[in-house]
C-alpha cells in the first residue's frame, strides 16, 4: 500500500468516505474469534466477544498490516462495548491515531446535526494527523467511490449462500477501497427453505454455516457485517465540507438501522417488509452474546413477528461458535416447522 496509512474501523456507522477522502485505507477489523480470551486481562468476560476478539488481535504484538505496526483506529460511540474497546485501545496504543466519534441515538434533525458535527470533527482530526486538508470535492469523490463499491458488492453477492455473502461482505469491509474482493465459494442452496437472518454481527464460519447445512436458504443477511451495510446508498451533496457532512449524516441515519437506535418501529417495519419482499418463510434471529442492543431488542421483535405470523428462531453466538454442531437439530426442527 506504499505510504497510505491503514486505519482500523469496527462499527458500521464509521463514515468511510471521510477516511477515504483523507487518503487513508480504512480496514474493518474482525479480530480472531478463537483467541478472544487474550483480552480478559483488559476487558471483562461479559463484554461483547467481537470487541474482545478485536482487542486480543491488536494486543498479540504482530503488525496489523504487513510492514506497518501502527494501530490507527476510528471508533464509534455506538454502544458500551465499542466505547470500552476505544478506551482499552487508546490506553494500549497512545502514540497512534485513535479517535472516538459520537453517534446519536435519534435519527431526527437534532441527531443529524450532532452527527454532522462529529463528521466535521473527525475530518479536522484527520487533517491534523495526515497534514493534508480534506476538501468538499475530495469528500464528494470519495462518496461516489463508496457508492460504486456498494453496487459492486450487490452485484458480486448475487446467488451466494448466506455464509458466502457474509464472507464477501466482510472482504469488502476489510479491504481498502482500491481493492475489489472476488466472491469465494458458497453458492446458494437450491431448494432450501428461504429464511432471513437478522442480528448484530456473526462469524461466517460459525452458526451461519449450520443454517445451510440444515437445509435453509439464507435470502438476506441482515447483519452489520453482512448485507445491512450495503442496503441503501449514501448520497453526498453540497458545496462546503459542512454541507457535505450534513448530507452524509442524513445518509447514515437513513440506512437500515442498528437496534441501538431509538426508532425501533422503523426497524421492525423494515424487517417485516423485507420478509415479504424476499419471500422468507421465517426469521433466524442470531446475535453475539453480551450485546445489549440486541438482547433488549429480541422480545419486541418476537412480539411483532407473532402479530405478523412470521416464525422466529433465536440463536446465540459466542463468536467462536465451537458449539454450532449442537444447533443443527434445532435449526432442522425449525425449518421443518415452517
Amino acid at each position: 500500500m506504499g505510504d497510505v496509512k491503514s486505519v482500523a474501523w469496527f462499527c458500521a456507522y464509521t463514515p468511510l468516505e471521510i477516511l477515504d477522502a483523507a487518503g487513508l485505507a480504512p480496514v474493518r477489523r474482525f479480530g480472531d474469534p478463537a483467541s478472544l480470551e487474550a483480552a480478559d486481562a483488559v476487558l471483562h468476560q461479559a463484554i461483547c466477544p467481537y470487541v474482545r476478539a478485536c482487542l486480543a488481535a491488536a494486543m498479540d504484538g504482530s503488525a496489523p498490516t504487513p510492514g506497518d505496526n501502527h494501530h490507527h483506529a476510528v471508533f464509534v460511540n455506538s454502544c458500551d462495548g465499542m466505547r470500552r474497546l476505544h478506551d482499552a485501545w487508546q490506553a494500549r496504543f497512545p502514540k497512534d491515531f485513535v479517535f472516538l466519534m459520537d453517534l446519536p441515538r435519534n435519527e431526527d434533525s437534532a441527531g443529524e446535526r450532532l452527527l454532522a458535527g462529529e463528521f466535521v470533527r473527525l475530518a479536522e482530526a484527520l487533517e491534523a494527523f495526515t497534514g493534508s486538508a480534506i476538501g468538499a470535492h475530495a469528500l464528494l469523490e470519495a462518496a461516489r467511490g463508496r457508492e460504486e463499491r456498494r453496487l459492486a458488492y450487490l452485484e458480486s453477492s448475487r446467488g451466494l449462500s448466506g455464509a458466502g455473502r457474509l464472507r464477501l461482505a466482510m472482504a469488502f469491509q476489510s479491504s481498502p477501497a482500491t481493492e475489489k474482493p472476488v466472491p469465494g465459494t458458497g453458492v446458494a442452496r437450491a431448494g432450501g427453505v428461504p429464511v432471513l437472518l437478522t442480528g448484530n454481527l456473526l462469524n461466517p464460519e460459525g452458526l451461519v454455516s449450520v443454517l445451510e447445512e440444515a437445509g435453509a436458504a439464507v435470502v438476506r443477511v441482515d447483519l452489520c457485517n453482512g448485507d445491512r451495510a450495503f442496503s441503501s446508498p449514501i448520497l453526498a451533496t453540497g458545496d462546503g465540507l459542512e454541507e457535505v457532512c450534513l448530507s452524509l449524516a442524513r445518509g447514515y441515519l437513513d440506512r437500515r438501522p442498528c437496534a441501538r437506535m431509538t426508532d425501533a418501529r422503523r426497524r421492525l417495519d423494515l424487517l417485516v417488509e423485507e420478509v415479504r419482499e424476499t419471500g422468507a418463510r421465517g426469521i433466524i434471529y442470531a446475535g453475539l452474546k453480551f450485546c445489549d442492543s440486541y438482547l433488549y431488542d429480541f422480545p419486541r421483535v418476537q412480539r411483532r413477528l407473532r402479530e405478523e405470523g412470521v416464525p422466529l428462531l433465536r440463536l446465540e453466538s459466542d463468536y467462536a461458535d465451537g458449539h454450532v454442531g449442537q444447533l443443527l437439530t434445532r435449526v432442522e426442527a425449525f425449518l421443518e416447522m415452517i
Binding site: 471483562h44 463484554i47 454502544c79 458500551d80
Partner: peptide, 18 residues
C-alpha cells in the same frame, strides 16, 4: 463491584484499576 451485565462499569473496571 462488578455488577453482572453492566458493560459500562465492568467494561471500564480494568482501566479504573490501573
Amino acid at each position: 463491584y462488578n455488577h453482572w451485565g453492566c458493560r459500562q462499569s465492568c467494561g471500564g473496571a480494568m482501566l479504573v484499576k490501573e
